Simulated scan of single mutants.
Amino acid sequence: MSADSAAGDAPHSTVPAPEHALDSVVVRQERGPDRCTCYPDDADEETRLTTWLSVNADIVRELESMR
């Protein structure tokens, strides 16, 4: 078994990296949970509200903590 295929190694993605960067914003709510929206860094406010995913902010995790 080679070092590259050792048991317990995480699989490597074959999906190419996107050509655009994503940004995120957390909107604090007086009532209800805070909301986090991820969107391309060039998206205008209307596009962010109608096209991109928003989730309750308390479920968002740092990418490095999930690797």
Rank of each mutant, 00 (worst) to 15 (best):
S2Y: 08
S2L: 11
S2T: 13
A3L: 15
A3W: 07
A3V: 09
D4F: 08
D4Q: 12
S5M: 08
S5N: 12
A6S: 12
A7M: 11
A7I: 05
A7E: 14
G8K: 05
G8Q: 10
G8R: 05
D9P: 00
D9C: 05
A10Q: 14
A10Y: 14
A10T: 14
P11M: 06
P11E: 06
P11C: 03
P11R: 07
P11L: 10
P11D: 07
H12D: 13
S13R: 05
S13P: 04
T14Q: 13
T14W: 07
T14V: 12
V15A: 12
V15G: 03
V15P: 04
V15W: 09
P16N: 05
P16Q: 10
P16W: 07
P16A: 13
A17D: 15
P18C: 04
E19N: 12
E19A: 13
H20L: 10
A21T: 13
A21C: 06
A21G: 08
L22V: 10
L22H: 11
D23E: 10
D23N: 11
D23S: 11
D23I: 01
D23W: 10
S24V: 09
S24L: 15
S24R: 09
V25K: 06
V26I: 15
V26E: 06
V26W: 04
V27F: 07
V27K: 07
V27G: 02
V27W: 02
R28A: 09
R28S: 05
Q29M: 12
Q29T: 09
Q29Y: 03
Q29N: 15
R31T: 12
G32Q: 08
G32A: 02
P33A: 15
D34W: 08
D34I: 09
D34S: 15
R35T: 11
T37E: 10
T37P: 02
C38A: 15
C38W: 12
C38H: 07
C38M: 14
Y39A: 14
D42W: 06
D42S: 06
D42G: 03
D42H: 08
D42I: 05
A43I: 08
A43R: 01
D44V: 07
D44K: 00
E45F: 07
E46K: 00
E46H: 04
E46M: 05
E46P: 00
T47W: 01
T47A: 10
T47S: 13
R48Q: 11
L49K: 14
L49Q: 14
T50A: 04
T50Y: 02
T50G: 06
T51I: 03
T51S: 10
T51D: 05
T51P: 00
W52M: 02
W52I: 03
W52L: 01
L53S: 06
V55G: 03
N56L: 01
N56T: 11
A57R: 01
D58T: 01
D58F: 00
I59C: 02
I59M: 09
I59A: 02
V60G: 04
R61D: 01
R61E: 03
R61F: 00
E64Q: 08
E64A: 04
